[in-house]
Write a protein that binds this DNA or RNA. Structure first.
Lengths: 197, 197, 197, 197
DNA sequence: CATGAATGAGTCTTCATTCAT
DNA sequence: AATGAATGAAGACTCATTCAT
């Protein structure tokens, strides 16, 4: 049965390429990362790369989609929880932990240089939506319980949480003397101060 | 025996090229902005460009140096002031206002994609230092007067102010529904919450 | 102990690939037609293609051989006829009819772009020879009966008939306002004028 | 005055590239001729090529335009002549002579493989129009003087002249034993027979 | 036999940079 | 000083072909 050689293998290799591309984009930026270097990192030939992805840009989109899906999964896993403020705090910490993959901050910067591309922008917008929509019910609930301030709409509070998280990742990416682990506490404290009634 | 026909003209043209490059980098990112497009924007020939700057990268450095110098000037101008908390707040607002030049957020993103370059990193580090050193005495003074918290070192407070500012500029650059003018108040409030004793 | 599961099936599939290749070459030219598109047209996998033909070029040769064989068959079928002038005229019309397969003119053009290849040139030369040798006895006979001119050698008359036919197919391939059906009469008249004593 | 370095030089080099491309296309066909080989033939760097022509295809168009312009010039030069039949005969011989450039027949074949491209088709259509419109008044005049047949419209006679010329060039391109010089007389005789009343 | 995933040589094209004028 | 023509290194992507299953 020589139909599809092995769907699992196909999927695994696709993931391997995505992973290699993430590494390269993070280390060199989108434009400077060559498909050749991605192939070298993934241990494949250039033909294989283009067998899985039609363009260099399309791997970037695949990475973003992958991240968005993971975020959605995370929020789905919280569905049964009852303490909204804790969920919000956990999300902040969860995000901070994701940044402990040393490639993530570099990757975030890399994406910044492709914001001219409408496909990328729309993928990012979708990701923002998923985060925002994931956070919103908990923020609303926390406002209802009086755990957090109500002078700002839940919508804007979500956005400002994301502002602080963005600043945090930027700082890590800058690789200045900034101990991400040590500052984790400060991050959660800052968000708490932001949300305090 | 005048060497250069007109040193003032030389300086003016240099600034014009820097400005054109800022426009192009902001709009297209560093790698995608071509020297040709910078020349077109500046209304000069490519030969002229390389007469003023040896490489494309060198204009980027010039832009960064220019920004750093302006920051230094701003802090120098505050030297006589007496209310440290107000100076800090003014710096935050001053920075937010700089972002009202629609090119700045785009430019910040553009720089993010060149962080592999040591010259750029060192220029950015210098800029950080200038901000940090500009802010530090006022933060120390404000701590001394009891206006702001003292549970965190002045050094780390400076960094966290910059975290929030970085997140703010990211959000503007993302061009999401984020009204920079309207959120200015929220920005200063967030910094106030961050610094509150 | 049958070697191939079914020799007839093998032959049929070979023909199907030849036909698909003819379609693709005609529509896109030899270089621009990809083996992938031939496979798609034939409804087979790329592996199968190379199972039947060792190279893309070899299918082209197979198409040419196929056409040459058909021409030889046509002439073989006339062997018993007695009116040489009519056979010549019929050949002209037969050729014109072959061009009514809309792929033929395009295919002829496609072949034109591979004339650098010695194998192709020799296949074409063989085809020319078959036409020439098929035509020659009838032209000689017609000269003997006085039906056509004798101031030119039979050999050169054959060639000039082919010149006119070539021009005709070119014109069809150009898809200019040239109604092949309507011009059939004109074609036969032109050949008649060419051959008139 | 360093404005335009030298328009004459620019034009000369453009022509040199066109000439080199003609050589390569004729020898290898459009698709197989690489821009690299054109550059080598023209003795320039690849950058220079793309400084003069935006794409490989655009040189092909330039060659076609060049040929069309020469045809138009030829007809313009005949404007004062009074013997229409002689002008027609001269055009046929003029065209045959053009084919004595050994590259022309190969080039004509090369063009055949790009007929999928609308830009090429439209350039060819324009060329056809120029020939047709150049020939038409003389054919009409020759019909009026009774020098040539009138049972076919002047329009169709023009087309059939082109059919014979096309067949002639094909034959030369095939490089079969076909002595173009010797067959020149036969060509003009064939056209005469075609046009005879 | 039939398949399609894997390959890498080869192509067109871009663009920072040089230099004669 | 200012220009823009010339350059060639480098990169994304295509596609004929191979081979394990």
């Amino acid at each position: 049965m020589p139909r599809t050689v092995d769907p699992a293998k196909h999927h695994a290799r696709r993931l391997a390429i995505i992973d290699a591309a993430l590494t390269c984009f993070a280390a060199e930026g989108f434009d400077r990362a060559t498909t050749a270097s991605i192939c070298r990192t993934a241990g494949i030939g250039s033909g294989t790369f283009f067998h899985y992805f039609p363009t260099k840009q399309s791997v970037l989109l695949a990475i973003l989609d992958h991240g968005t899906a993971e975020t959605a999964d995370w929020f789905a896993a919280q569905r049964e929880r009852t303490d909204p403020a804790a969920v919000i705090a956990d999300y902040v910490l969860h995000t901070a932990d994701e940044f402990s993959d040393p490639r993530v901050p570099g990757f975030v910067k890399a994406v910044g240089s492709v914001l001219a591309d409408p496909d990328i922008v729309s993928a990012l917008a979708h990701d923002e939506t998923v985060v925002h929509d994931g956070l919103l019910p908990w923020v609303l609930a926390a406002q209802r319980t009086g755990d957090i301030r109500t002078d700002l709409s839940a919508d804007r509070l979500c956005i400002w949480i994301m502002v602080v998280l963005d600043g945090f990742v930027d700082r890590i990416a800058a690789r200045l003397p900034f101990d991400a682990a040590a500052e984790r506490d400060q991050l959660i404290d800052t968000v708490r101060r932001l949300l305090a009634p």
